[in-house]
């Protein structure tokens, strides 16, 4: 009986694992394999060991992109998660009116495909019929070009913030709703006000949900592709083919046909994300231990 049930366990997880291996493990292994070869003008594709990685680590176009995404992560994500936390606390505060309206209205952008979000904001930013330029024109001030060198990263950050704040808000709000009421009773006995309760009871209680949103945002930032790829058409001189590491890997594989090098680059992007995620996890784990 026991033995039979053990085999049933395998049978239940087998379909998932088969697809998991075929669609995740095999492509990753293949990317690792490809990345060890290099294309040469003479001799075709030859084994190069870690040459592609050595090249990637000194490739200023890749490093610039990684650095840009690190800056993006350090500025956009705190703003987005700060807003999401504020909204979640407001929804949970008990004094806010129209809770349902706010919860849905702020979440709705998540249901909008990122392609549509980027197209839409691109038009809104645009100088010819964007409402922002029209408003500035009416007020008699010259509007800045929102997709110029100084503003492009901020404009991109705005699109991403618009798309994902509501998603993060819902995760945090769900976690807030699950806080056991005993925690509040203790705070009430201590005479803590709403701000104090939020700061010392609610936020510590949803630590794991906050961590989850940080990790998801980290993964999202470093593999940014759709939004910059669509805004690229409006500002090709500012958002070039290596603006984000992922755009770079894409153009390496499909424009310059450097498949082996592209595999090494996308493997490295993955590695950066995994290392950064584990750093965040370890840093927060260590702090929480007494």
């Amino acid at each position: 009986m026991r033995r039979a049930r053990t085999w049933t366990g395998y049978l239940f997880v087998a379909p998932f694992l088969v697809v998991f291996v075929a669609m995740l493990v095999v492509p990753l292994a293949y990317a690792a394999y490809l990345s060890l070869f290099k294309d040469q003008l003479i001799g075709g594709t030859v084994f190069g060991g870690l040459d592609n990685y050595a090249r990637a680590l000194t490739d200023s176009r890749l490093l610039d992109g990684v650095w840009r995404m690190a800056r993006f992560f350090l500025t956009q994500v705190p703003i987005m998660l700060g807003l999401a936390l504020f909204f979640a606390l407001a929804l949970d505060s008990g004094v806010l009116r129209l809770v349902r309206l706010f919860r849905l209205g702020i979440y709705i952008p998540y249901a909008v495909p990122s392609v549509v979000a980027a197209l839409m904001w691109g038009y809104i930013y645009g100088p010819s019929f964007g409402p922002l330029a029209q408003l500035a024109d009416k007020l008699g001030i010259s509007s800045p070009n929102l997709l110029s060198g100084d503003f492009a990263l901020g404009s991109l950050a705005n699109v991403v913030t618009w798309e994902f704040t509501g998603y993060n808000m819902i995760i945090l709000y769900a976690a807030l709703r699950a806080i056991p009421p005993e925690l509040y009773e203790a705070a009430a006995v201590d005479g803590a006000g709403p701000w104090r309760t939020a700061w010392s009871v609610k936020i510590p209680a949803i630590r794991s949900a906050l961590l989850l949103t940080v990790i998801f945002s980290l993964i999202g930032s470093f593999q940014l592709f759709n939004e910059p790829q669509l805004l690229q058409r409006l500002a090709p001189n500012v958002i070039d083919s290596s603006y984000t590491p992922n755009l770079y890997a894409y153009s390496l594989a499909f424009t310059s046909q450097e498949v082996n090098y592209a595999a090494a680059v996308s493997f490295l992007i993955g590695l950066v994300i995994v290392i950064a995620s584990y750093t965040v996890l370890l840093a927060t784990n260590r702090r929480s231990k007494p």
Binding site: M23, L24, P27, L28, Y30, A31, L34, I215, I219, F222, Q223, F225, N246, A249, Y250, A253, V259, A262, A263, S266, F267, I269, G270, I273, V274, S277
Partner: peptide, 12 residues
């Protein structure tokens, strides 16, 4: 944590 894009190119 494996980014979908690290997979997309080898899958292609």
């Amino acid at each position: 944590m494996v980014p979908t894009t690290a997979l997309a190119i080898p899958t292609y």
